[in-house]
Amino acid sequence: MHVVVCIKQVPNTTQVRINPETNTLIRDGVESIINPFDMYAIEEGIRLREKFGGKVTVISMGPPQADQALKEAISMGCDEAILITDRAFAGSDTWATSYVLSQAIKKIKDFNVILCGKQASDGDTAQVGPGISTHLDIPQVTYVKKIEEISEKSARVERMMEEGFEIIEIPLPCLFTVVKEINEPRLPSLKGKMKAKKAEIPKWSAEDLNCDFDKIGLDGSPTRVVKIFTPTPRKGGEILKGDTKEIVDRLASELKNEC
């Protein structure tokens, strides 16, 4: 079984700060990590290989330093890694990004399953996984919490819902985005770390992927970010005290004024 895992390098912070003038993320001095949700995708990919044989290829689109995230994936046990990097990709939104990743997967060709984390911890869109399957015209299941059965032809998975879960049967090749309930990611191994240190990670450019240049980068991105801002913190509510009739009257008039 050939599993392709798509990962993203993100800043290691839950408190992302935004530059108020440029409305962009402040990345200076923030350590980069693999998007936490992608760790579950990596782990599930390795588990599928351990069970069925084959290999796990991990890919990432990002700047050259994203090779560190790919090396970490190798240290956990992924077999191969490819970095998709090109200045022409800069400014890509989720549509353009999923197009580029789908082009890379087309180049990889023989795959059975694509795994993604449910969303990235920086953008939180959860759109790239579904976008890839759309570009590749293959079926997808999002929010997978368990792969119950899987063969070369089809899979049966549990899809996390707000209350309970759905059981979905799906033909392969297909794409899953996974949630943290699916497994517990392993730590790297010493042999994996040594392999990662030596690993030469191939870099694929827009040209290598035969990308349509109208579909990538800022120009190829239909999304326009109008404004990013830090919402002002909510003020605490007011508790009315006193005689019941009086405070009911006040509450009613305040509510009327607010509307």
Binding site: L187, P188, L190, K193, M194, K197
Partner: peptide
């Protein structure tokens, strides 16, 4: 050495996280 640093880092990660 690089290898010894790897051992140190990995064991520290196990110590901290697990």
């Amino acid at each position: 050495t690089d290898e010894q640093k790897m051992i140190k880092d990995l064991c520290r990660q196990i110590a901290r996280e697990k």
